[in-house]
Amino acid sequence: MSSSLSGRTVLVTGATSGIGYETARILAERGATVLMHGRTAEGARAAVDRLITLAEVDGSQLCVFAADFAHLEEVEQMAARVVAEHPHLDVLVNNAGMAAPERHTVTADGNEIAFQVNFLAHYLLTNLVEPALTSELGGRVVNVSSSLHRTGSIQWADPNRTRRYSRLAAYAQSQLALTVFAADPRVTAISVHPGICTTGLLPLYAPEGTAPAEGAAHVVRLCDPAVEIVNGAYYDRDHRVAPAPAATEERTVKRLSKLADVLVGHAA
């Protein structure tokens, strides 16, 4: 029988569909208070209503948060609200993600859209909610990454890939950055590849995949304080494995942090 997560508060980004939605469902069914993020308040509210109706989850366990990660100002506003309303946050699940579009696309903030939505927004959110993240045993950040991070490289001189764009390379770069970020010593964090699931990202991986709930179970396992983690580690579903070599290089971790601070406008 799964242990109770009653008393735990977890923020799940991208909780309106796919792995994020199923992660929120399992967490709520196990008693956690779940802050469900969606790109819009309407989308997040609809996801909450589905959980209340279909999973018979107590609505008092679910809270709606909205921010379009293609707009960093919205991320800042959401983070401020999270810290104000939930000053004790046990887990942050950085799950929201998108496939890089066929055409090179830049956000209003000036960043390649997949790099911003999949990594920079989570980098910013994590740093802004850090005051609320508990340092108690079990407090952690779980980055939902991808096995495709192994094919990625961070283009330090051109992270927005303006000179040479490939949607697969842009997506892989964003996943590598998210995996590297888990090794940042400023936060207790891990990253996990939840498996290939039938979500909107499936075409990047394979013709078919497993149910999103199966991938979500691997994410939820790592949210459980009863599961000991190794800070900065990378998990392929239930197994801790070595990530791409760049993901744990101290120089790369520091370099990415400096780059991200500049791109999100928080550089000293």
Rank of each mutant, 00 (worst) to 15 (best):
W156R: 08
T53M: 11
P101M: 14
R164M: 12
F69V: 03
M98L: 07
T188P: 06
S174G: 02
R45N: 15
E76W: 12
R186I: 14
P203W: 04
S17P: 00
S166Q: 09
L54M: 11
L178R: 00
A244W: 02
Y21T: 04
T33W: 07
I52Q: 09
A182L: 07
P185A: 14
A189T: 07
R163L: 12
A177Q: 05
F181M: 12
A182M: 03
V91M: 04
T188Q: 09
R255L: 11
T126G: 03
M36N: 05
R140V: 15
V129Q: 01
A47S: 08
R25G: 00
R255P: 06
A246V: 11
R251L: 09
D68P: 06
E250V: 13
A67M: 12
H218C: 10
L222C: 05
S60M: 09
H193M: 12
V12I: 07
A70M: 04
V82W: 08
N94V: 15
D236H: 14
V144M: 04
A217P: 03
Y171N: 03
H86E: 00
T107G: 08
V93S: 03
L11K: 09
E85I: 08
E228F: 05
V75Y: 00
C197T: 11
H193R: 06
N231T: 13
L263Q: 10
H122S: 05
I196S: 01
A211G: 02
R240H: 08
A32T: 13
G38A: 14
S147C: 15
F119Y: 04
T9V: 13
T33S: 14
R237G: 06
T40C: 03
W156N: 00
P243S: 03
D109N: 14
E208N: 13
F181G: 02
R150V: 09
T107L: 09
G209P: 13
A267R: 13
H149G: 08
S153L: 12
R221E: 14
D184P: 04
W156Y: 06
R237E: 15
F69H: 07
V219M: 00
G14Q: 09
F69A: 06
Q77G: 06
P207A: 11
H122Y: 02
P203N: 07
L201N: 01
G31R: 04
